[in-house]
Simulated assay, not measured.
Amino acid sequence: MRGERPRTSLLMEDIGQALSVQYNNLVYDMKATGQDIITLSLGEAFFDLPLPEFGGLTTPALHHYSHSRGVPELRRLLAKYYETKFALPVDPDTEMIVTAGSKAAIYMTLMAVLDPGDQVIVPEPYWLSYPAQIRMCRGEPVMVPHDVPVLDFERFVTARTRAVIINNPNNPSGHVYTRAELEHLHELADRHGLLLIVDEAYNEFMPPGTGFLAAGALDPDKEHTVTVNSMSKNYGVSGWRIGYLIADQRLTDEVLKINQHLVTCAPTLLAAYLAEHFDDLLDITRPQIRRTVALRNRVGAWFADNGIDTLPGTSTFYLFASLGDSTLDSTGFAGRLLKENAISVVPGIGYGDSCDRYIRVSVGSESEDRVTRGVTAIRDLVEATTPARLPARPGPA
């Protein structure tokens, strides 16, 4: 006689799939059956890149573990990148860890700093894995609705608040935090003893002539700032899963232990390739990044001309488009758009409860012609699901 099957964690049963990944898995399944899907849901930009050739790499032992902080040469180049481009000095030997994607960097940081019941302030729209990762670390996410300005974040601080986490530039809105906003967040962190976790995975996706202010530059001693970034996005190699974090040695030493017990090290071969081709790949991707950001902002102007509002933003390759007066919520809208028009977007509900009247539109993985077809269908569906306005009744005589 068999006993009961072992149960799964109650915590994990309460955490859903990452909504953007869930939708893209559905798209992959549909494409596998031969369906043509205009994919405006992918969280990556497709660039023309040379196929990698690993034969010329000089890093020894490419098929084996590297240092668990990451391939030393890659760490040195990333440290130089942040120091020369963003005025943030970094010791590559003590203040940086290369990770298997920036998702892992964020999760391991949260694991290193949270005790059960600790709270993390999460402004909406947030990158959709933040709350799940906080819960997985036995913490409690405290959501800030998208219409609350940064200067009002202090009212969400409690005795249990441990950290604030932001995505800058923001996925899904494209908002770039101003110097005044970042200075206020640093003051908030100082005043309440909080950690400021800043996910800068889209820092290269800025409009031409626009500088990017790294949050860590306002806290060069890293007293309360953790910077997380991703080579995957800026280099157009999302599937390679190479991210990194920058923090003071006290915190990186704790994250290092987690990294060693979870994955040992980021993929040695891929990290070595990125080190050998660090500047060459940026030279290839940067013109394509500029074209992608320009397309993003043309689509934003087109939305505005067609009566569709978007949350303010000029960066990344995302737009967070309003459903206006449509009778559909974001999940219903995205489902119907996919079923009827073979166009995929991500429901806004995945980015916070205050965002259910929005959808995330990504323009990074399709041609401009197909993007145009997709956003036209979005406009048409908004119009088709918006009740006709009745004429105003005459007032009393």
Rank of each mutant, 00 (worst) to 15 (best):
G3M: 01
R5D: 13
R5A: 14
S9Q: 06
E13V: 10
A18I: 15
L19N: 03
Q22F: 10
N24W: 05
N25H: 06
L26N: 10
Y28M: 14
D29N: 15
K31T: 11
K31V: 14
A32K: 07
Q35V: 10
I38R: 02
L40I: 08
A45D: 05
F46K: 15
D48M: 10
L49R: 10
G55K: 07
T58P: 03
Y65T: 12
R69C: 08
L77W: 02
K80L: 07
K80F: 01
Y82S: 10
K85R: 14
K85H: 12
F86V: 04
F86H: 12
T94Q: 11
I97T: 01
A100I: 08
K103G: 15
A104M: 08
M111C: 12
G117T: 05
Q119Y: 07
L128H: 11
L128S: 13
P131N: 07
R135D: 07
R135N: 07
M136R: 12
M136A: 14
C137I: 00
G139W: 03
V142Y: 07
V142E: 08
M143D: 12
M143S: 15
H146E: 11
V150F: 09
N171A: 07
P172I: 01
V176N: 00
T178N: 00
T178I: 01
R179Q: 11
L182I: 09
E187H: 13
D190V: 04
L196G: 01
L196W: 01
Y202K: 02
N203R: 15
E204P: 03
E204K: 10
P208E: 15
T210A: 14
A215D: 03
L218C: 06
D221Y: 00
K222E: 07
T225E: 07
S232E: 06
N234Q: 09
G236K: 03
V237S: 09
G239Y: 11
G243R: 00
I246D: 07
Q249E: 12
L251Q: 00
V255P: 01
K257E: 12
K257C: 00
I258S: 02
L262K: 10
V263M: 08
A271D: 12
A271Y: 08
A272I: 05
Y273H: 13
I284C: 04
R286S: 04
N297W: 03
R298C: 14
G300E: 09
G300C: 11
F303K: 04
D305E: 13
I308Q: 05
D309Y: 12
T310K: 03
T310I: 09
F317V: 02
L319I: 09
F320K: 00
S322D: 11
S322M: 06
S326Q: 03
T331S: 13
E340A: 15
V345M: 09
V346Y: 01
P347K: 05
G350Q: 02
G350N: 04
Y351M: 09
D353G: 11
C355P: 04
I359P: 03
V363D: 07
V363C: 13
S365Y: 02
E366L: 05
D369E: 15
R370M: 06
V382I: 15
E383V: 14
T386R: 02
P391E: 08
P391A: 08
P396D: 11
